[in-house]
Design a binder for these strands. Structure first.
Lengths: 236, 236
DNA sequence: GCCTATCTGTGCGACATCACACAAAATGAA
DNA sequence: TTCATTTTGTGTGATGTCGCACAGATAGGC
């Protein structure tokens, strides 16, 4: 399979958009990795050894409070990369990165990423634009957390996940969704039931199916749309 | 006053930390600006013409909801810069930047900033590290908004402001603070009263004085400390 | 087929915040 | 001074979420 890596990198949009020349430099160092739901990609404060380009997996950035509570800060799929501090200059960050949906990623050693970033070419531009998009996602999460109801937040979260998912089924218990959203499991149960009764989703023992995406888009607050528009503007 | 600009740039920490050579290139294009409370530095989606390096002013990034509600996403003083999308590559952002505390700033035309950024030298490193710090502030705002009480959020906000302020007096009505925090004015009144009774602050008709900074630091949630530690780690 | 662990549903009292209404106090302009 | 405006204080009822407890329901291992 001489072009297996090319095929794989083609399925991470950041990598796929790079010129041939850059691809050729990076591909020898790109290594496929498989992740399962719940795998910890890294821990707060840890020194990063690689950046991860999701291909079919979805990775959540979470902040874990001292008392054990948690809340999601941002989510990344094959439109982006995890390991921002490696090129922004901080090397570490105070968040945990966990697999929200199992699947594959490509990882690149820190040094190779940094060398290519310092060339100031297309990879640098792509990484910075992606980071700008992620900043918007995080910002809007802050706004949504403050101003909108749990149900609106759940809709936003479902749509952000769906956008990064292949297919319509998300493997995720209500307990886990509650950890992501920073709310109680019971609250997720109530909201999810309402969404199910409205015919927007169906769920059962750790699986959620998006049934009526359009309906969800009508139910969600403007926060989702703001993020969506920025991602499309910056990453296409 | 041959060295007036040097003096001014020395009071923005980002600029002050640059090597002489970079300073010399930028200084001819740096222009001092004065801002008053409430001035709009820019509107969501507007094309930025300059980046702003606060010297004595404080600038808030707010998201304005369609229904008129608002919430603060981040705050920047003389440790940083406003206009991130100009070097990250997006050119615009969906937020409003307003003056939270009047004072001066230095502005630099977009082109000069971008040219220097592309050189890949110290300015690029400094801007990226600052952006990484701001990402942490935004992230932690999201977490705090979801998991902590209005009173904890108010403490966090007061401390973030105090860190960026010269002196202990903040010119700000409770109404405005409520807009920043994305809560009701009455809620701010109650929390502020409790903080005043505890001897941590004093306020009166649009002015807030930080009386017991240590007390505030004991009352605040971990979110403030996480952000503080990241700023010190990344920007010193 | 049974049993245990996991996942989801529900009830209840507590609490934080909301929306709205209006009072009290301070300020500034006429 | 007087009066209108701004800022802050307070009350009331509604709502959303929390914390806790526990009851069904389902899946998977034995």
């Amino acid at each position: 399979m001489p072009d297996s890596k090319a095929t794989q990198s083609a399925s991470n949009h950041l990598l796929a958009a790079l010129p041939e020349e850059v691809c050729r430099r990076l591909e020898p160092s790109l290594e496929p990795v498989d992740f399962n739901l719940g795998d910890v990609v890294y821990e707060p404060g840890a020194r990063l050894q690689h950046v991860y380009f999701p291909v079919t997996c979805i990775i959540s950035l979470l902040y874990m409070m001292e008392n054990g509570a948690s809340a999601e800060i941002g989510v990344t799929g094959n439109e982006g990369v995890v390991g921002i501090p490696l090129y922004m200059g901080g090397d570490t960050m105070p968040n945990r990165a966990v697999i929200q949906s199992s699947g594959s990623a490509l990882r690149l050693p820190a040094k190779e990423l940094q060398d290519e970033f310092r060339r100031g070419g297309e990879l640098q531009l792509a990484l910075l634009r992606f980071t700008q998009a992620l900043i918007t996602q995080m910002s809007q999460t802050a706004v949504c957390n403050q101003l909108h109801t749990l149900e609106q937040q759940l809709c936003r979260w479902l749509l952000l996940s769906h956008d990064r998912l292949q297919g319509d089924e998300l493997v995720m218990t209500q307990e886990l969704m509650a950890n992501m959203l920073g709310v109680r499991r019971e609250g997720v149960t109530l909201s999810a039931r309402r969404l199910q009764r409205a015919g927007l989703i169906r769920y059962n023992r750790g699986k959620v199916n998006i049934i009526d995406r359009k309906g969800l888009e009508e139910a969600v607050c403007e926060c989702y749309r703001v993020v969506k528009v920025e991602y499309e503007r910056l990453l296409h």
